[in-house]
Computed example of a mutant assay.
Amino acid sequence: MLRAVSHLPANHGQGKPVDSITLAHDERRLRRKLLRAKGGLEVMVDFPQTITLDHHGALLLDDNRLIEIVAASEDLFEIRGKNPAHLVRLAWHIGNRHTSAQLEDKRILIKRDHVLKTMLEGLGARVTNVTEPFFAEHGAYHSHGEPGHALLAR
C-alpha cells in the first residue's frame, strides 16, 4: 500500500499527478485515513496532525508520485442578504448554530438544511440551491460542523 508523505498546496509546481482523489469538504480535513484514487490506487494518509487538503493540491507519495486532490461538488444553499450589514447579521445567526459556512463578499454558502433555510428566509435572506465545491471556514480550535458534534449541540 502506498503512503502519503506530505501534502502539497495548489500550484505546487512539483509535476503532473498520476491520479486524483475527489473529496467533499468534510473529507478533505483529515489526519489518518485510507483513500482510494479514481484509478484504484489505495493511499494511506497518516500525518502527525490534522490538515485540510487543498483543492488542486496533491499528496506526495512515498514513491515520489503525486495524487491530485479535487474538491467534490456538494448540494449547498447560497445565502444573499439585502446589503452587507444584513449579510453580516445572517452570518452571525449561522455561526450561532455552529454551522460550517463559506463566507464571501456577497454571499454565504452552507450545506443544505431545511430548518436553517426556513430560519434564514424568516430573517429576510434569499436562499437558493446551488451545487459546487464547498470551502467552509475552519474553527479556531475545531470544526463544530463535524458529524457527531451537531448531535451534542442539540
Rank of each mutant, 00 (worst) to 15 (best):
P133F: 08
T131I: 11
H93K: 06
R89E: 14
K117P: 00
Q102F: 07
V115N: 10
F77V: 02
V115I: 11
N96A: 13
K82R: 15
A72W: 11
H114W: 04
E132H: 03
V88C: 08
V115S: 12
D75E: 15
L109V: 07
E74I: 09
L103A: 13
D113V: 04
L109H: 10
S100K: 01
E104L: 14
N129A: 14
V127W: 02
I79Q: 02
L116R: 06
S100D: 11
E104Y: 00
V115C: 01
E104V: 02
L116F: 05
A85P: 00
K106S: 14
A85Q: 14
G95M: 03
I108A: 01
R112L: 02
V115P: 00
D105S: 08
P133V: 04
H114K: 07
H98Y: 15
R97V: 00
E78F: 04
A91H: 09
N96E: 15
G122S: 02
L109W: 09
P84F: 09
T99K: 12
S73Q: 14
A72M: 10
E78P: 05
D105T: 09
I110S: 04
V127P: 01
W92S: 05
G81C: 05
H98K: 15
A125N: 02
T128M: 08
L90I: 06
K111D: 12
E104F: 00
V115K: 13
G95C: 05
N96C: 09
N83Y: 11
I94Q: 01
F77H: 10
A125W: 01
W92N: 08
N96L: 06
I94T: 02
I108D: 00
L76C: 08
A91Q: 12
F77Y: 15
E104N: 10
R89S: 11
Q102H: 13
H93P: 00
N96F: 07
G124M: 05
I94V: 13
S100C: 05
T99I: 15
P84A: 05
N83V: 03
A72V: 10
L123F: 12
E132S: 12
N129E: 14
V127I: 04
T131G: 00
E121N: 06
L87M: 10
T118Y: 04
L90S: 08
P133Y: 06
M119H: 09
G124R: 07
T128S: 12
H93M: 07
I110Y: 03
K111P: 06
D75M: 13
R107F: 12
I110W: 01
L123A: 06
L123G: 04
H86Y: 11
E78V: 13
T118H: 11
L120R: 03
F77I: 02
G124I: 05
L109Q: 03
V130R: 09
E104M: 13
Q102L: 07
R89P: 00
R80Y: 07
E121H: 01
H86N: 11
G122T: 02
A101G: 08
T131V: 14
H86T: 10
G95Q: 07
K117F: 00
T118K: 14
N83W: 04
E78N: 12
T128D: 13
G95L: 06
H93Q: 10
E78M: 15
L87Q: 12
P84I: 09
Q102V: 07
V130M: 06
E132I: 02
